[in-house]
């Protein structure tokens, strides 16, 4: 169940949209911020607010890589595995991250702090290899810089989970 106030604000967003689908991403992001991830219940609520079927919401939710249909940690680590970062040696960075966090791709650390997922390009192909943690992008990475980045994020970790704050 979402608070009445959130429902009202989402309905207002949909009312302003040219079509329901146009507002779908905003609605899903707000619901994700509320629940921590886009739960089945949230998909149902999004469908109701948007006037779509649950499947039609699922179609959009599973298309976007920053909508999470499974529980995730406080902060998301996206690592670019596209061609430019591959050229720049992203695999070394990925191996390092997996070892440091003790998780496989798609996994969440035992303390629930980070979830590691691949992504496809952040639009800064000259600066690879790069990752994003929460809403911060770290570029020109080496294993040492990765450790520093994780340290910074860990320290600010208890604050509001900022990947959700994008909403």
């Amino acid at each position: 169940m979402i608070p009445e106030q959130l429902r009202k604000s989402l309905e207002a967003r949909v009312a302003h949209a040219f079509s329901a689908r146009e507002a779908a991403v905003d609605v899903m992001k707000d619901l994700q911020f509320h629940y921590g991830w886009l739960t089945d219940e949230a998909v149902g609520e999004a469908a109701e607010i948007l006037g779509l079927s649950r499947l039609q919401v699922e179609e959009l939710a599973t298309f976007y890589e920053m909508i999470y249909r499974r529980p995730v940690g406080n902060k998301m680590i996206h690592i670019c595995d596209s061609i430019s970062c591959w050229n720049a040696g992203y695999e070394k960075i990925l191996d390092h991250l997996k070892a440091r966090l003790g998780v496989e791709v798609g996994g969440t650390t035992a303390d629930g702090q980070f979830t590691l997922v691949p992504c496809c390009c952040m639009g800064r192909c000259g600066d690879g290899p790069l990752i994003s943690i929460g809403s911060t992008i770290y570029d020109h990475l080496t294993p040492e810089l990765v450790d520093q980045a994780l340290e910074i994020e860990r320290l600010s970790g208890t604050a509001a989970p900022d990947h959700k704050g994008q909403a």
Binding site: L52, S53, L55, Q56, E58, E59, T62, F63
Partner: peptide
């Protein structure tokens, strides 16, 4: 409306 395409 109950059948479609998901993922990418």
């Amino acid at each position: 409306t109950d059948f479609g395409v998901t993922g990418s």
